[in-house]
Design a protein around this nucleic acid. Structure first.
Length: 409
RNA sequence: GAGCCUGUAGCUCAGUAGGUUAGAGCGCCAGGUUGUGGCCCUGGAGGCCGUGGGUUCAAGCCCCAUCAGGCUCCCCA
């Protein structure tokens, strides 16, 4: 896990405000859920056989209750949707969220045990327009930041009927050659054959290349749904590639699945991904609510921005630093920070009784635009020295005029 | 969970075949300039050399373990 220090945190502010701004234009509304969730919710929501649940949860018990640090956001949003009867508010609900997630994995570039995701959900629509809307939102964020080097992959993992037919076909295809598969894929043939398609083991690649693809096994409704999503994306000018071998690691997806990747991320090349989950809310005990969503990694977004040399936030400037000489000046300065701050200026001063030279140096380091220099002379004449740090000129003014001048700028 | 690599000052890194008080640049602090930053000069502070154990007269350097990080695999964001 990592600390985000001053200098780095400004980048986060920049990205977070960009996300909020684009969410506003799409009219997604923010939802915040607890970092802790009931273990059962996550297990049922994400799927017991997924890697995330079976080996990556941070879990603990307290009394009879079992908790996990949330590994993703969708299950929590669904829980909140059910718990607060949000379907009764009517219409289609559009949410976005942003915050830390936790998975107990071996860390590497673009992968931490505590990481940050933003994501969005559209709940209560089975229409392909909702799929296109959620993808458009995700793509708009990356476009808005200027990240160009991305690829959107699109597929349908089918509804339960289609998927059963496809799984059967896959098992029939792989079974005769089971010995040629990697150990892990041999296991997956029993538990979750579609995951074999996601394997990167070299020995699996040959077989995967000529394996049957899901496209031919989609029933008419699922196939039509995918075609309509594609048409909507075409109309929006959003480029994508059809990838009939795209499968996702969470069990709740139905029909639409998509992933946005970037070659700038190295081995962990997924910026974000998502899909439709028409059955999840019902499975969790809520009303039948077809929904679609995505999640994206903020750390990976930052890596992609750096790779493209996209300027993010920088160290904040300081409006005024008051430099003092002597105890009376120090007292005067400490009192006069308030009117400066009340006027909306950022103002600071030496808090460690150091030399003028040290104070000037600190003002420089803190990117002060102005220094206000106060010593015996100034206190006598009530005319204070205002120094412009960038242009190195000074003038003597009454405090009221200094305030006026700085606020007026 | 697996493989390979790395871990020396706040940061970036040197440390020669194991041999006295572990170095540099930048940064930090102070002085040169007892009322003025950025340049320059001088000085200073700051390291149980990731942690624990072992080998040796002697370990930053060799061995083992462990923790953390990097690159892969796996998986995902």
């Amino acid at each position: 896990m990592v600390d985000i220090l001053p200098g780095e945190v400004e980048k986060w502010h920049f990205i977070e405000s960009k996300i909020r701004e684009i969410a506003r234009t799409f009219h997604f509304r923010e939802i915040r859920t607890p970092l802790l969730e009931d273990t059962g919710l996550i297990a049922r929501g994400v799927g017991k056989t997924t890697d995330i649940v079976s080996k990556e949860l941070f879990a603990f018990e307290r009394g009879d209750d079992r908790y996990v640090l949330r590994p993703e956001g969708t299950a929590s949003v669904c829980r909140a949707y059910i718990q607060h009867n949000l379907h009764l508010k009517g219409g289609v609900q559009k949410f976005f969220y942003m915050g830390p997630m936790f998975r107990a994995e071996r860390p590497q570039k673009g992968r931490q045990r505590q990481f940050h995701q933003f994501g969005a959900e559209i709940m209560g629509s089975a229409d392909p327009l909702a799929d296109a809307e959620i993808i458009a939102f995700m793509v708009a964020l990356y476009r808005g930041l200027g990240i160009k080097n991305t690829r959107l992959r699109l597929n349908s993992v089918g509804d339960p009927e289609s998927r059963e037919a496809y799984k059967k076909a896959l098992v029939e295809y792989f079974r005769p050659n089971v010995n040629l598969l990697s150990d892990i894929s041999q296991k997956r043939l029993e538990t979750n054959p579609m995951r074999i398609l996601d394997s990167k083991e070299p020995e699996d690649q040959v077989l995967i290349e000529s394996a049957p693809i899901i496209t031919g096994y989609l029933n008419e409704e699922s196939a039509k749904h995918l075609r309509q999503v594609q048409k909507h994306l075409d109309r929006l000018g959003i480029e994508y590639v059809d990838d009939p071998r795209l499968v996702r690691g969470l069990d709740y997806y139905t029909r639409t699945a998509f992933e946005l990747t970037s070659p700038d991320l190295g081995s962990q090349d997924a910026l974000g991904g998502g899909g439709r989950y028409d059955l999840l809310i019902e499975e969790l005990g809520g009303p039948a609510t077809p929904s679609v969503g995505f999640a994206a990694g903020l750390e990976r977004l930052l890596i992609a921005c750096d790779a493209m040399n996209i300027p993010l936030g920088t160290q904040p400037e300081l409006d005024v630093y008051i430099v003092t000489r002597g105890d009376d000046a120090k007292k005067w300065a400490f009192r006069h920070l308030k009117p400066l701050r009340d006027a909306g200026l950022s103002a600071s001063m030496d808090l460690a009784n150091r030399s003028m030279k040290a104070q000037m140096k600190e003002a420089d380091r803190e990117l002060a635009k102005w220094t206000l220099i106060v010593g015996d002379d100034e206190l006598q004449s009530e005319q204070f020295t205002l120094r412009n740090m960038a242009e190195s000129y000074e003038e003597k003014l009454h405090f009221a005029d200094i305030l006026k001048k700085l606020v007026g700028l």
